[in-house]
Each structure stands twice: as structure tokens, then as C-alpha cells.
Amino acid sequence: MIKGWAIGLTAVAHPVFSHFNMKLRKQQGIMLILPAILVMGLFTVYPLLEGLRMAFTNKHLLKEGVRYVGLQNFIRLLSDEIFWVSLYHSVLLTAVVVFLQFVLGLILALAMNQKLPGMSLFKSIIMASWVIPVAATVILFKFMAQPDIGLINIVIKTIGFENLNRYWLGDPNVALPFIMLLHLWRNVPFYGVAFLAAMQAIPESYYEAAEIDGANTRHKFWHITLPGIRNMVIVMVTIHVLWTFNNFDFVYLATGGGPVNATDVLPVYVYRQCWTSYTIGYGASIGTVMLLLLMIYFIVFIKISERDKIA
């Protein structure tokens, strides 16, 4: 099982080893990855284990006397309305965002793959949104969503919908889609550029051969382009599901989970449990559920893509 994950993670063929001097090489290999393991071990594996441990305690930031409470936190989760709402939002957000990023990224890549004048300039600036700090992105959009003075409202007023003027992140029906928009704004160009790279790695001869066979554009797309970028799609989707599901700063900096619970997602709910209610034990139990969900997703997704590959 672990092997399956690792193959999925790396999605590459392993190099062939020569069997000579094997013992020495093993030792050297461990020495080489030691620095990384030390840093990761100290700063994440230990905190991770500590986090898992806390999930079974009643740790409260302001109170002394931590004790183990078994599964009590998890039982409390079952009847916690906001937890379920947050879970729903997290899943919805992740699914919609990753799906739209995939589709829009594909469209962007197809457009960029055309040899047309100006395209190389476009390619070189389009990814700018991906490199700017998230905090800056959020400020930018908060500014644009301001009533009266924000660009969005100015445009809306100009085209005659004066009564729609509002703070867009403060509208419970719009806030979550708006957060999705932020994700798209940041990541779609990255998808586009990544898919483009994968497309350009597909040998031209495949297309030529298909053309001789009389395939039309649609055929070529479904039977050559898509399978050709398959690995890239797997990688992009996998990491972005992780990143989106665990994303904290977009929602926290933009709305903090409000208005009402319209944008509550699990990472923000965890944060609130830890820092508003100070119930770290309970917060950790939510984090543990998130970890479990992502692991299940990971196993299922990798299994499916591995099976497809063989078939």
C-alpha cells in the first residue's frame, strides 16, 4: 500500500541500480537525506504526533491539568453543527475549485499551445498571480470588493446595477463563491502553464499520424492530448486537493469564516477552536479527522489512477 502512494507521489520510473557496492551506497544514501529528515522530523513530524496526541485530551490553553478523555472529542464532533457545515464547505470548496482549475487551466493551456503572435509574452506574464503573497492577493480582492470605492462595485454601478453595490465578502450568498474566485485567480495560470508543458512534451509525430488517419481536432484532443498530459493532471490534482483542503490563509484573511458560517471551512474552524475558545484538544480532533479524510482520498485516488494506468 505504501508503495502505491509513493509511486503516485513520484509518478516517475525508478532508476535502475547497479548492484555494485550496495552496502556502502545504502549508508551514503541515509547520510544524504539525513538533514532533510532532521528538519522535517523536528519541526513537523513531532508537532504532527503531538497534534494527534492532543486530539485525545481535553487540553485547554488557559487551564492547567490536561488529561486523556478517550474518544470524547470525536463524539462531540458528531453533534457539532458547525463542524458539519465546515466539512461540507471544505469538501465543496475543494471539489469545485480543483475541478474548475482543471477545466480552465486546460482551456488556457490549449490557447497558449497555439503558435500565434504575442503568445510568448502572454505566457511570460500570466503566472504573475501565482507568485505574489497570499496576503497581498487577499488585500487586493478585499479592496476591489469594497462598497462604493472598489473596482467591482464601480463597474457594477457603471453598467446600471446601483442597488447591487455592497461589500461582496460580507454577503453570505456570495462570500464562498468569492473565496473560490480567489483560489482560481491564484492557481489557474499555474495549471495552464503546467498543462502546456505537458502538451509540448507530446511528440508531434503522434498528431501527424492521427491526421493521416483522418482524425479531427476533437479526436486528437481526446485520444492524444488528454492521455498525454495524464500524469501531469494526476500530480496537479493531487497536490491541489491537499493544498486547497488545508488552505487556511485565504479564508482566514478574507472573511475569517463569516458572514454567519457562510465561509467556515475546517482549517479555519480548527483555528477558532484553538484561538477563540482555546480548546486545543477539540481543535486537534478536528485536525485528525482532516488528516484521515485526506489519507483516504489519497489512497483511493492513487489506487484508481494506478489501476487505470495498468488497464
Partner: peptide, 21 residues
């Protein structure tokens, strides 16, 4: 007292009302 969670609950209740939930 630790007002954080109380204030949050107060305002959640307000929001339930003003958003007609």
C-alpha cells in the same frame, strides 16, 4: 471571565436572527 467564546456565541445568535435563520 474568558469572553472570547461568549462574545462569539452572542454574535452568532445575532447573525442567526438578522439573516433570518
Amino acid at each position: 471571565v474568558n469572553w472570547g467564546p461568549v462574545s462569539e456565541a452572542n454574535l452568532r445568535a445575532v447573525n442567526f436572527v438578522i439573516y433570518d435563520k
